[in-house]
């Protein structure tokens, strides 16, 4: 971006810089506080911690209810992210390559969960899942998370597909390769970094989800849902340990995405 595009005066630029720094601090301070707190030896949430220990991690890993929530979250994220990857990938391909009537309408429909306020999606899913008898079931949870993450997958893969020259596919067809063979041998190998990125985003998206889950999960506890409930009941330092683990997991996953996309030279084209 050129300087002129931001604004002519130096004051405008300084103001913007100050706002940017403030925003960054605002976003990182909670992380900076929560991580040392998780290693605290104190019984209550105090900052700075009086001395260091791993007791809250021990509590977390020793608590069968936390482990159960962990397992539920992992299971739902694993299945729903793969489902979202397949469905979102096919939808993105169809929308980018197809020239049928009502394409924009179809695209809007797929992207809706990203745009409509989550609380409305939650209510809609609550009613719909109740109607088909899946409310409070693991399958219902997987279906809901899949639906929520399809737009994410479509965004990431849509960009990648648009940038992949369609004529490469057309040549493959003309050389005699079927659609499926072309997909496996030509398209997917070239889109692999973006497919990996989309899968990670969908996995994190599901693992982090709390609003819709609170509405429809019934007796099932996922990690973020349990964190929220614990916070409401009593302030327990265990959740700082959970939060730290989630932060570490997210940072590692995003670093893996950045590494894979960067190696494929695609970093600047995919909006992370």
């Amino acid at each position: 971006m050129s300087r002129e595009a931001i604004g002519g005066s130096a004051w405008t630029r300084r103001g913007l810089a100050a706002m940017g720094i403030f925003g960054l601090v605002f976003l990182t301070v909670p992380l900076v506080i929560v991580i040392p707190m998780s290693f605290s030896s104190a019984r209550a949430l105090t900052f700075p911690p009086p001395s260091l220990s791993l007791r809250w991690y021990e509590t977390f890993f020793g608590d069968p209810r936390w482990m159960e929530a962990m397992w539920t979250s992992t299971f739902v994220a694993a299945i729903s992210s793969v489902a979202a990857l397949i469905l979102g990938g096919l939808a993105a391909y169809g929308l980018r390559r197809g020239t049928f009537k009502g394409r924009d309408w179809a695209e809007g429909n797929f992207m809706a969960p990203l745009i409509v306020p989550t609380i409305i999606v939650a209510i809609a899913l609550y009613l719909a899942l109740a109607k088909v008898g899946l409310l409070g079931s693991l399958l219902g949870l997987v279906v809901a998370h899949t639906l929520l993450n399809v737009p994410l997958v479509m965004m990431v893969l849509g960009v990648a597909i648009r940038e992949f020259d369609q004529r490469i596919e057309q040549v493959a067809w003309s050389l005699g390769a079927s659609w499926g063979y072309t997909m496996r041998k030509v398209v997917l190998p070239n889109l692999a970094p973006s497919v990996f990125a989309a899968w990670i985003f969908a996995f994190i998206g599901s693992f982090d989800e709390v609003i819709v889950t609170s509405f429809i999960a019934g007796k099932y506890e996922t990690v973020p849902k349990k964190m929220f409930n614990e916070l409401v009941l009593e302030v327990n330092p265990t959740i700082t340990a959970v939060a730290t683990l989630l932060i570490a997991f997210t940072v590692l996953a995003l670093a893996a995405v950045a590494f894979v996309l960067g190696r494929a030279g695609k970093l600047k084209e995919t909006v992370v």
Binding site: D165, I168, A172, N190
Partner: peptide
């Protein structure tokens, strides 16, 4: 089939 953009499998 040959295109201007070569369309080789990268």
């Amino acid at each position: 089939l040959v295109f201007q953009s070569y369309a080789l499998f990268p």
